[in-house]
Amino acid sequence: MDHLYWDLGECATGAVFEIELRGSTARVCLMDGDEYQAYVDGDEYEFFGGFYDLTPVVLEVPYDDHWWLIVDSNPDRIRVAVNQVFD
C-alpha cells in the first residue's frame, strides 16, 4: 500500500497537528496503533480526518495513545509538512 506516514508517538488528548498539503489533494488520516495496523494489513479500520483539498488541515488527538498520521495520495505529486501546534 503506497502512502506517506508519520509516527507521532505517544500523544495526549487535545494535541493538535497542522498538515500542509502542496501539489495534490489527499485523504489525511489520524489513527491509533491498532487502526494503523489494520490499515496496513488491508483490514477494516477507523480514522479521524477525511479528504482535503484546502490546507492547512488541523487534526486534534481525541484520546491518549500512540498515534500515526497517514496521507493517502500520489507520493510523487504531493509535498507534506506536519507540525504539532499544541500539545
Rank of each mutant, 00 (worst) to 15 (best):
T13A: 11
A38C: 08
D64I: 06
Q84D: 03
E35K: 01
V16C: 05
Y36Q: 02
P62R: 09
D41G: 10
R27F: 08
A15P: 08
L69E: 00
A26M: 13
Y52P: 00
H66Y: 07
W68E: 03
A26S: 08
G23E: 02
S73Q: 03
P75T: 07
F48K: 12
D2Q: 14
P56I: 07
Q84W: 12
R27A: 08
A38H: 07
A26C: 14
Y45H: 10
D87H: 09
L54H: 14
Y39L: 06
V71Y: 01
W6K: 15
E46P: 13
I70F: 02
A15Y: 09
D76S: 07
F86I: 06
I70T: 05
E18Q: 05
S24R: 07
D34Q: 06
Q37V: 08
I70S: 02
L21T: 00
I78L: 12
D32W: 01
W67H: 05
E60C: 06
A81G: 11
F48N: 10
D34H: 04
F47R: 10
I70C: 02
M1C: 13
G23V: 03
L8F: 05
V16M: 03
D64V: 08
D7Q: 14
A12K: 15
F47E: 08
E20D: 07
I70N: 03
Y5G: 11
R77W: 08
E10R: 15
Q37G: 13
E44V: 13
Q37C: 08
V80F: 04
A81C: 14
P62D: 15
I78K: 04
R22M: 05
P56D: 08
Y39T: 04
D43A: 13
G42I: 12
F48Y: 12
H3L: 15
L54K: 15
T25D: 14
V71I: 06
E10Q: 10
A81K: 09
N83D: 12
C11G: 03
D41M: 13
A26D: 08
F86P: 01
E46M: 13
G50M: 11
P75C: 05
E18C: 06
C29E: 05
I78Y: 11
E10H: 07
V71A: 02
V80D: 03
Y52I: 01
G9H: 07
Y45T: 06
H3S: 09
V58M: 15
L54Q: 11
V40A: 04
V82A: 12
E35P: 02
Y39M: 06
H66D: 13
Q37E: 09
V57R: 00
E35L: 00
D76M: 13
D43G: 11
V80R: 11
Y63V: 07
H3F: 15
I19Q: 01
W68M: 04
D43C: 12
G9N: 04
L59H: 04
A26Q: 09
L4A: 12
R77E: 14
N83G: 06
G14L: 01
F47G: 13
G33H: 04
G9A: 08
V28P: 00
M31C: 03
W6R: 13
F47I: 11
E35F: 01
G42V: 11
F48V: 09
A38N: 06
G23F: 09
V28S: 00
E44Q: 10
V58H: 10
Q37W: 05
C11I: 08
